[in-house]
Design a protein around this nucleic acid. Structure first.
Lengths: 211, 211
DNA sequence: CCAGAAACGATACGATCGTATTGGAATAAG
DNA sequence: CTTATTCCAATACGATCGTATCGTTTCTGG
């Protein structure tokens, strides 16, 4: 048989180029030609990797989602001995993409989210990524709640609810930073204040037990 | 002098068309021709109203921002006698654009926000709209805090902070509803749970005084 | 009524888009 | 070495975009 190329790595390379361009010119502002140029391959090569532009974007959004999710997981695995509170804080930080070095990823994410709001096929992978993050947060919150005593009754602090709140707040803050309404520092402050509040509510349902 | 037309009303009519299209096909998916067709005017008429497409989008985003802000204000003015808690809840509801009938506006807003993240001229009007909403929320929270006693010291619950949190949470929830990750009902529940928490913290800084 | 200014609709233009096609270079099997 | 097949780069194509231009129509002030 003739020539063989590693499509998987080329696809990733192209996805990176899509991200770079989406970061600079917005979602619809990425053209196949520009992507090819950025990825240092020909337009034909891009077309061989992906049947259409839509397929390419789909792959790219999955790529970004995986990267973010995995980074959160890595960060958590790196500090398993610390308190649940610290772990939650780190997770939230990684999700919110507030720091300067994550600005590009934040813009890409927002671009895809906006597109997904009017394009169901794009929304699927996005939901999957969010579900992974939510699971992770629920696990952390549940651990923090259970670490020490059994349930208390009345208002046991629904972990799914809290995870939703945290996820939505992180997303909203990211957005506000992107449009220059908040600085990264202000947003971080707001996020951490919310986490402190969550932590206090956690303790109130289970009065004993420190870090 | 020759023919005269009411440019202001025509501009508004065109802005409405922009909104309808942005709702259907996303931000960059609106073309001058489609806008003209929707607004039932000729392409030339649109060009006479706005020097360029960018100018048209700028006007449209202002239009939407004004509409949302004014609706919040109207809603508040309609129930001035009620408790501050109820007022805050209503304001949050209007801002979050969760209900089905606000879905279109939510999509438009998200479209512009995503665009603004990579286009500074669009970000300006957006920040202005957000600032108006934030002012409003700060006012409500401050009123609620002060209604009964003076300051307390230690942790007096920073109204600006809380307004930021509320605004970001509302935005994040809206987004999640748009991509189908949450139903409007779930999002509303999360939002109201947060408001309840805020209200309880309010009371804790100032133990006396009921509704 | 009647000029003249403003608005209009239509159409032209150049650029850029996603996609299809195609002729040749590269490579593994026989 | 030949041959068949896979890949590639270039180019062609049709559509659509934002914008510019240009007669024509329409209305107002004198």
């Amino acid at each position: 048989m003739p020539k063989q190329v590693d499509y998987e790595s080329r696809r990733r390379r192209i996805a990176e180029a899509v991200c770079l361009l989406a970061d600079e010119h917005g979602p619809e502002g990425v053209s196949m030609r520009d992507v090819a140029a950025r990825a240092q391959v020909s337009l034909g090569a891009v077309q061989r990797c992906f049947r259409s532009k839509g397929e390419m974007l789909l792959f790219a959004v999955d790529h970004v989602g995986d990267r973010i999710t995995e980074r959160v997981r890595t960060r958590l695995a790196a500090s398993p001995a610390q308190s649940a509170a610290a772990a939650l804080g780190h997770a939230a930080d990684e999700i919110a993409l507030l720091r300067e070095e994550r600005r590009a990823e934040a813009r890409i994410w927002l671009a895809f989210v906006a597109q997904a709001a009017v394009s169901e096929p794009l929304a699927g992978p996005l939901r999957t990524s969010y579900a992974a993050l939510q699971n992770l947060l629920v696990r952390l919150i549940t651990e923090a709640t259970e670490s020490g005593s059994a349930d208390e009754g009345a208002t046991p602090l629904n972990p799914e609810h809290e995870a939703c709140t945290l996820l939505a707040l992180a997303d909203g803050l990211t957005t506000h930073v992107l449009i220059g309404r908040l600085t990264a520092e202000e947003a971080e402050e707001v996020l951490h204040a919310h986490l402190v509040g969550l932590w206090e509510r956690l303790r109130s349902t289970r009065p004993r037990k420190a870090v």
